[in-house]
Nucleic acid binder design. Structure first.
Lengths: 340, 340
DNA sequence: ATTAGCACTCGAAAGAGAAGAGTGCTAACA
DNA sequence: TGTTAGCACTCTTCTCTTTCGAGTGCTAAT
């Protein structure tokens, strides 16, 4: 069953209007729209058909129509017009990349903010995946007899650091030796392999130099990897409060309880495929996200996928503008990172 | 005008009950309370007096009473009983300090979380002030021809880092020299002085070694200080949604709009005096905080004030438990930091 | 000084009615 | 045959009452 062009037109008008107003749309309102030359009665017939096909819904038996999830899906798949971003939008986005002293974190932080500001939705970005980077330098700086900072720098400029107390069994000079050997031996290996190779490859070598090798390794490892790196950035959570569909504290709370579960969101965002993906309502598979849409796009460095940038808002989202914004932003991010 | 002991008792019961129930308290309910042996009529008379004195309010002409801000203030100043924390609370708090690998950030992060979890209010902590620390080591690690990471480590184990692009006019070896000289010259000076002394003291010395000194200094400085250090930690914002007084999206939004203004909150929290301070409703001087109470306490390292730990919730707060929790936590923080 | 009694006030909840937006269906029309 | 006018019907929303109960303030009795 394929839709007639008139049905398409009416569907489009209803979705566009509903995205604007958040109110059910009636036949009379549609017939008065520019570009529509049918009477309300005709439109009512078409709406009834569209409803039967599953693209529209009613809130009650004599209400106007609102888009169903299937309607949104169709809209997103087949009716998304290329949106022309305003000068202002474009400027605000490029401003993110205009700074002299920049690093990944700063750019990502600014990106997530500009995205939530421009859309009035909640924006989330997964930062560059540290473990894909390679070891540039490892360092231990002793602060006192019993405490030190371990610092790890990757070839992509990411820095991880952690303070720790030096156990009595390990001397400062032993730690230093350990670090020297690790730096020499493991320069430029992927961080993700560091853990396993630390155990396997150098235990023997070190035994001759250092007492308590295992303890020292354990400590060093604990210091560096005890916490997952914070590459999760979110902005505009309160924007949810502005959406009329969430004008009830109950709903807000249920949504926030999901958004706050960082692990869950990371799982949700971690992109499988390159490119842009839209999940509408129940497509998200999570009860609390039934009324939400998630739009995510990947960004990359020299073609290699680096992270995900995403937007969370009501199903009634301004998809066409939002998609343009995300595309522009993710492309700019990719470009900037690759240029460095 | 001093309150009679019966008035005190009634005031206490009303505030305690209201903190529990969030409902206006009537005379009959009070007279049935254990420890009260007066008839409702007697209590009504006392309540009328307490209202005239400004300690109580009515929500409408025939409602029960609720505490006024003056009532809360009196309660907090004169009626706060030492609260015996449950085993569970105490355990959860000490668990924060029980880890093997710890640094400031981790402890602060965990503290802010445990505090909001235990209270169901919003918790904020100002982390240790970096600029009071001293320079332990400065380092530049070159990542490529045109990019590098600058890392600054303080004697307190704080690490600041920033990536930057190396301008064409400056050679890598010059940067290295610069860092060496800075390390030698400025070891152990307070970070806060680093900026000015960099300008004044070593410009001359460096001129002979390095071309483009000023540019290099400018870059290094920009890299290290371009961003304020993130020593602001917050947790439990969504807890506000659980409070019956904020069951209206409007109110939540106005509160969140304030909480999100990091600068403003930092100003509000930065403690002038050592110790614990409670600000109730209008005492906060901020319109949007009329319905909120703020409790803040300082923590310190060897007696030297280090930061602030605070709790934000409705005026109807469980002051006595909350004060005990904050005191315990801030003391533990001070103790832990001093022990290191 | 305390308390019982009582009239009164106000909010919350429930119900009734009117208005209005919108539908579905039927029959007329081009 | 596709389109439209007309009309009965449905359902929400708003407003107006009514009722109920909790709680007060005041007066008079203890």
């Amino acid at each position: 069953m394929v839709l007639s062009s008139r049905q398409l037109l009416i569907l489009q008008v209803i979705i566009d209007e509903f995205i604007q107003s958040a109110q059910p749309i009636g036949s009379r309102a549609i017939s008065k729209k520019e570009g529509i030359s049918y009477s309300p009665a005709t439109i009512r017939n078409e709406m009834a058909d569209l409803e039967e096909l599953g693209y529209l819904e009613k809130t009650h038996s004599s209400s106007g129509r609102i888009p169903s999830e299937k309607g949104y899906r169709f809209y997103v798949d087949h009716m998304l017009l290329p949106f022309h971003l305003s000068e202002k939008d474009q400027k605000l986005i490029s401003a993110v990349f205009d700074y002299e002293y920049v690093d990944f974190e700063q750019v990502v932080q600014k990106s997530v903010e500009v995205l939530s500001d421009l859309t009035n939705y909640t924006s989330i970005i997964l930062g560059p995946e540290v473990f894909e980077a390679r070891l540039k330098q490892l360092q231990i700086i002793q602060l006192s007899k019993t405490s030190a900072v371990a610092i790890l720098v990757t070839n992509k400029g990411h820095v991880e650091h952690r303070s720790f107390t030096i156990p009595a069994e390990i001397s400062g000079s032993d730690l230093e030796k350990l670090v020297n050997i690790l730096n020499e031996k493991f320069y430029n290996i992927p961080i993700i392999q560091l853990h396993s190779r630390m155990q396997v490859e150098i235990g023997n070598i070190l035994n001759s130099y250092i007492t308590n090798v295992n303890l020292a390794l354990k400590y060093l490892h604990g210091a560096l990897f005890s916490q997952q790196p914070d590459n999760y950035y979110m902005s505009g959570m309160t924007n949810m409060l502005l959406q009329p569909e969430f004008n009830d504290v109950e709903k807000v709370h249920s949504i926030y309880s999901i958004i706050e579960k960082e692990d869950l969101m990371i799982d949700l965002l971690r992109a499988t495929e390159q490119g842009l993906k839209i999940s509408i309502g129940q497509e998200n598979k999570i009860d609390e996200m039934q009324d939400l849409s998630l739009i995510k796009a990947t960004y990359s460095l020299s073609g290699e996928q680096l992270g995900t940038i995403a937007l969370l808002g009501p199903k009634r989202m301004d998809y066409s503008r939002v998609v343009s914004l995300i595309n522009l932003l993710s492309n700019q991010m990719s470009k900037t990172f690759t240029d460095w």
